[in-house]
Design a binder for these strands. Structure first.
Lengths: 218, 218
DNA sequence: AAATTTATTTAGATTAAACTAAAAAAATCG
DNA sequence: CGATTTTTTTAGTTTAATCTAAATAAATTT
């Protein structure tokens, strides 16, 4: 049985090895976990002894099959809980992370099985990230800029490319938010701006720049 | 912010001080927590320094107002999660304890507020135990032996007095379980046995002994 | 390639929560 | 009441997870 700390290290190593390079550096782990490199070295040795990672001194670590299994279970739990929080408890997307970070460590296979069932076997979390199944299998849903959608196509906002606060304030002003449903009502060829419908409620015009910085899924 | 261990000690001290005597002994705490008296003394000192309990060496502890507040919050969370597990995730009563024991330590006031709302503000957990509100207020629901019910009265099985396995096997055989709805169809004066309806499904006769060992609520 | 910088590891401490064994206080019993 | 038993505390360890400071290995730069 792994501790919370061990699970968090594995999750981080797994994420870094998929988003960055396969071999993960001590410093990279320390940075994402807000811990010191010396502490990481200690934990690395422990996880290596447990067969969760492959470790060669001074050469970073890679995750083992066993470690990947654990990491994917934690990710699965995290994302299922996020769906629960948003779908059932009406949390906003920006409120779920810290809570899911705690809930992901609850140990009970039955709980996860039942939660999955209760949520109707979701394949993606509210951010559009895939939820691994019991075997760790999942399929990534492509995220495309809103500017790439066809006329009359629709999708959900799952991320933004540019997260400076002026941009976010603008999105807020027009009623766009993570999770909002967008439909492309018109594509203005003159300046590549778009007329879009947000949440079947309001229609607005947005510039090419804006549409390139909003990421959509589905 | 209190640790899991601290919360568990407070919960235990609170429970012992209400079910037993107000001053709780070191040994009693050690026994319920499956820990050693020496460890309890250490933790007692810590909780005392934090103002959670009142402590006089060699004379046991009593819970402070602040400590009671914390304990009741943990109890509230535990019982709300139990309702969730049983009502929403179809857990049986005997399966919920270990999981709720973990979930009760999740830190997020918003989560508990929303969970409470989602569950429609339950006042009692599946065992018939009261759920404290945000202010720690609650009302105990009386548990009476099935033998004390009036003719045609009904209630829910919330506990058994005698938990030897022969008795439990018998209950299983007649289809009675924790949470089952019972209605008194007839009271046989000759031997004080009862004819009861279980879950609106089957009717059975049970002896006086049996009816005195089944506890009912509502 | 040598010197310097950066990354990683080692050594030694710290904190929380547990433990054992021994000492001390309180309770009980003859 | 004094002796014995029980309960509680103290003293000293242990383990997990962290830290700082120093040492060493690897990478980079001139």
């Amino acid at each position: 049985m792994l501790s919370f700390a061990e699970e968090n290290y594995l999750k981080t190593i797994y994420h870094l090895s998929t988003t960055d390079k396969e071999d993960v550096s001590t410093n990279a782990i320390a940075e994402t976990l807000h811990t010191k490199p010396a502490s990481v070295t200690d934990m690395i040795r422990k996880l290596s002894n447990k067969g969760m990672i492959n470790y060669r001194k001074y050469h970073g670590v890679s995750i083992s099959d066993e470690g990947k299994k654990v990491a994917l279970t934690v990710v699965r739990k995290h994302r299922l809980w996020e769906v629960f929080l948003v779908d059932k408890l009406k949390f906003n997307w920006d409120e779920v992370h810290d809570v899911a970070e705690q809930l992901e460590h609850i140990k009970s296979p039955l709980l996860i099985k039942r939660l999955d069932e209760f949520l109707n076997y979701p394949k993606y979390d509210p951010h559009g990230d895939p939820i691994p199944d019991e075997n760790g299998e999942f399929q990534i849903k492509p995220k495309v800029p809103l500017s790439a959608l066809d006329l009359n196509a629709s999708g959900i906002i799952v991320a933004v490319n540019d997260s400076n606060s002026l941009f976010l304030q603008y999105l807020d002003k027009i009623g766009a938010y993570l999770g909002a449903k967008i439909k492309v009502l018109d594509k203005i060829e003159f300046d590549n701006s778009l007329e879009i419908m947000i949440d079947n409620k309001r229609t607005v015009f947005i510039s090419k720049e804006v549409s390139e910085n909003i990421l959509i899924t589905e």
